[in-house]
Computed example of a mutant assay.
Amino acid sequence: MALLPQILLHSPTKLFFLNPRTTITTTTTTTSSSSISSLSKTLTPSRKPNLFRCSASSFPEKHHTSGLPSQPDDTIELPLFPLPLVLFPGAILPLQIFEFRYRMMMHTLIQTDLRFGIIYMDSSTGTADVGCVGEVIKHERLVDDRFFLICKGQERFRVMNLVRTKPYLVAKVTWLEDKPGGEGGEDLEVLANDVETYMKDVIRLSNRLNGKPEKETQDLRRNMFPTPFSFFVGSTFEGAPREQQALLELEDSATRLKREKETLRNTLNYLTAASAVKDVFPSS
């Protein structure tokens, strides 16, 4: 699986990072049966520690709801795990579960359905209404009852209302799907190809600025359709969870790709200017 080098992404007001270890596959990830910790070293983002330590103690239990009425025929109950990160469909996320209530949740999931909702939450914006299902594709229970997990993003969902908050959050959710096309009739293939081109240019210039060989970037789409590709691009915007959450919530693939294209175009302009400065002042 191709990996992206870590590079800065620039918008008019923010700097983002491409996550060097974000991958998307069309089938369930398979690994050897060695230790899951060695697997996590391969899949985890570049920052340390390698695994997110999953404790929601720092977050309030109260969840703001969208105010939409419950629709029993269209909703299911889903355990929720609020975290300061955004999971996208198809993305791989390593987790360490050590807080007691979430260890309880894991024991239940192992006996029933290995899926739970990961939803973004921070102290300033509160809990989001849109999240992504994480399916446990690999897990290891330690002697102290902690768990190491490898999760893969599946369907997106919107929280309709909370069912309970103890011992962990459970909510009624409804599934989200992207609209088939953009409002202006945009060609999704053209937009996806444009985004891929900008990503390749950004990676090339970033390598140049970092003194790395300017190798030709491999195929980033890997035969992905535009919608899963738009999720892949969003998952690479490391260090900007609010922007990632905004991308996750969009229900139009064309709008998501256009927003990502604009961010990458701004990044390319920024890196082009930085490269020109470096050419004039090589020692700076």
Results as ranks from 00 to 15, higher is better:
35 S>P: 12
35 S>E: 12
35 S>F: 14
37 S>F: 14
38 S>V: 09
38 S>D: 14
39 L>D: 12
40 S>D: 04
42 T>A: 11
43 L>D: 00
45 P>H: 14
46 S>F: 14
47 R>Q: 11
49 P>I: 06
50 N>S: 13
50 N>M: 06
51 L>W: 10
53 R>G: 07
55 S>D: 15
56 A>E: 08
56 A>L: 05
57 S>V: 09
57 S>C: 06
59 F>V: 10
59 F>A: 07
61 E>R: 15
62 K>Y: 09
62 K>R: 11
64 H>T: 14
67 G>H: 04
69 P>S: 12
70 S>Q: 06
70 S>D: 10
70 S>A: 11
71 Q>L: 04
72 P>S: 10
72 P>K: 04
73 D>T: 11
75 T>R: 11
76 I>M: 10
77 E>N: 08
77 E>C: 07
77 E>A: 12
80 L>Y: 05
80 L>E: 10
80 L>H: 08
80 L>K: 06
82 P>C: 09
82 P>T: 13
83 L>P: 05
83 L>F: 13
85 L>V: 13
86 V>F: 10
87 L>T: 09
87 L>P: 09
88 F>S: 05
88 F>V: 02
90 G>P: 12
91 A>H: 04
92 I>G: 05
92 I>D: 11
93 L>P: 00
93 L>W: 15
94 P>V: 09
95 L>A: 06
95 L>M: 13
95 L>R: 05
97 I>A: 03
98 F>S: 03
101 R>T: 06
102 Y>K: 05
103 R>V: 10
103 R>A: 01
103 R>M: 07
105 M>F: 08
106 M>Y: 01
107 H>G: 01
107 H>F: 01
107 H>V: 05
107 H>E: 12
108 T>P: 00
108 T>D: 15
111 Q>I: 04
112 T>K: 12
113 D>M: 03
113 D>L: 06
114 L>T: 09
114 L>D: 05
116 F>G: 05
117 G>N: 03
118 I>V: 15
120 Y>V: 08
120 Y>W: 13
122 D>R: 08
122 D>A: 09
123 S>C: 02
123 S>H: 15
126 G>A: 14
130 V>M: 01
131 G>R: 02
131 G>P: 12
131 G>E: 01
133 V>Q: 01
134 G>I: 02
134 G>D: 07
135 E>P: 02
138 K>V: 02
138 K>P: 00
140 E>Q: 13
140 E>G: 04
140 E>F: 13
141 R>S: 01
142 L>E: 08
143 V>W: 03
144 D>H: 06
144 D>F: 03
144 D>M: 03
146 R>A: 03
147 F>K: 04
147 F>L: 02
147 F>E: 03
148 F>E: 04
149 L>V: 11
150 I>K: 04
151 C>K: 04
151 C>Q: 03
151 C>F: 02
153 G>S: 10
153 G>R: 02
153 G>L: 09
155 E>L: 00
157 F>V: 07
157 F>S: 03
157 F>L: 02
157 F>Q: 00
159 V>W: 00
159 V>I: 15
161 N>I: 00
161 N>V: 01
162 L>G: 06
162 L>W: 06
162 L>R: 04
163 V>Y: 10
165 T>E: 13
166 K>Q: 14
166 K>N: 14
167 P>D: 09
168 Y>M: 08
